[in-house]
Amino acid sequence: MQRIIIACILTLLVNAKANAGNMPTVFGIAHLATEVVSGEGSKEGFSVKSRSSRLGVRGKNTFKGNLTGIYRFEFQIDMADDNNGDDFVKSRNMYAGITDKKLGTLLVGRHDSAMKKAIGIKIFSDTVAEMTTIMGKDVKLYNRANNTVYYQSPRLFCIQLLASVSALENGDSKNLFDIQSIAITFKKNNIYAGLANEKAEAGQKGNRITLGYKFSGHQVGAGYEFGKYASGAYHKAFVINGIAKLTDLYKIKATCGKRMAEKDETAYGIAAVRDLGGKSELYLLYHRDTNDNTSVDEQALSLGMKYVF
């Protein structure tokens, strides 16, 4: 099966290059990190991690009546493993859709939920310091789900509406949709704000407020989330992060967050980053996560390279 998937990926890439008339774009991220982990309850040792490395094709076609068709095939590939593991290739966002400048965009396929799309500033995406266990993943929110219908409105006075519904093959919900997500975002100049709500599967719910600001090459952001687990227990969480630009080549990234539930989890990370241009970078990252729920106090030192193309 893995060989079939790889063959399909290669076929898509070859056809994308050959079919220049439709202007498809080959894109991807090669993201690898060497990591040393230690601490109570953690899986200690040295490892090389492929941090959500991916490869894909996206494109669009202009139709009659001022409509534009869009499509995307994106696969996550483990660049640090062989092709025998179950996680060697995974599907990411894969959809077909249509866009109208006045009515907005409608996508059908596998896609991020509206809440996930409205996160705002994420400075440690796909690294060991990503705060998904603090906000979202612990409650099974911020989904990228199968069988999704996603809508994004045109931007009106800096405001945009996002909405998505998904039906899971093995969902436990008795509702028509297993995941329902809606968000409103505000973008003007260097200011970002987002409000989001998501209901998922067996009854877990979440609400999130996000704020972000960029200035002179620096960034600051904050998010606050509250909601309920499927069990009915309540949770609250916050994350604060920032980027300080030192020179045109170097910057410092930092983040901290805490999830407050029956048992708390606290995490923080700091990284020295060398900009390679575009969104590519080299980084040295320290991260610590203390999780009272699992009795884990983990520390990690990560040296990574992310090449975006």
Rank of each mutant, 00 (worst) to 15 (best):
K258Y: 11
D297G: 00
D178R: 00
K279Y: 06
K137A: 10
L55I: 14
D87R: 14
F27T: 08
R288N: 15
A20Q: 13
I134Y: 04
Y283A: 15
E225L: 04
D289P: 01
A237E: 07
N66V: 05
S181Y: 12
F124W: 14
L276T: 07
T148W: 13
A200C: 11
L13R: 13
V296Q: 15
A193Y: 02
L10N: 10
E40W: 01
M79Q: 01
N61M: 14
H111L: 02
D82Y: 04
S53R: 10
M131L: 05
G223A: 03
T290H: 13
C158L: 06
S38G: 09
S52P: 00
K306L: 12
N189M: 10
D126M: 01
S47E: 10
D264C: 03
A18T: 15
C8H: 13
H31M: 00
A18F: 03
A163V: 11
R110I: 12
A114N: 11
A254M: 08
A18P: 06
L195N: 07
L282D: 09
G212L: 00
F177R: 10
D78R: 04
S153P: 03
N189K: 07
F177E: 10
E265R: 14
L67A: 03
A16F: 00
D82M: 00
I5N: 09
K101R: 05
L301H: 02
A114Y: 04
D78W: 00
I191D: 13
Y250H: 06
G206C: 06
Y95G: 12
L32E: 14
S91N: 03
A202W: 05
A237D: 09
L168F: 11
V239K: 13
G56A: 05
T148C: 07
R3L: 05
K101V: 04
G304E: 11
K253P: 04
F226D: 03
S47V: 00
Y192W: 03
S38L: 09
R72S: 01
L246M: 15
L107R: 14
I209T: 08
K140T: 14
C8V: 11
G21W: 12
L12R: 00
N15I: 08
G171L: 10
T99V: 11
S231E: 13
T25H: 07
M1W: 08
I182F: 13
R144T: 12
G212T: 08
N241M: 08
D264T: 11
E44D: 15
A118E: 09
G56H: 07
S91A: 15
G39K: 07
A230W: 07
I243Q: 12
D297N: 10
A145S: 15
S125H: 01
A20I: 07
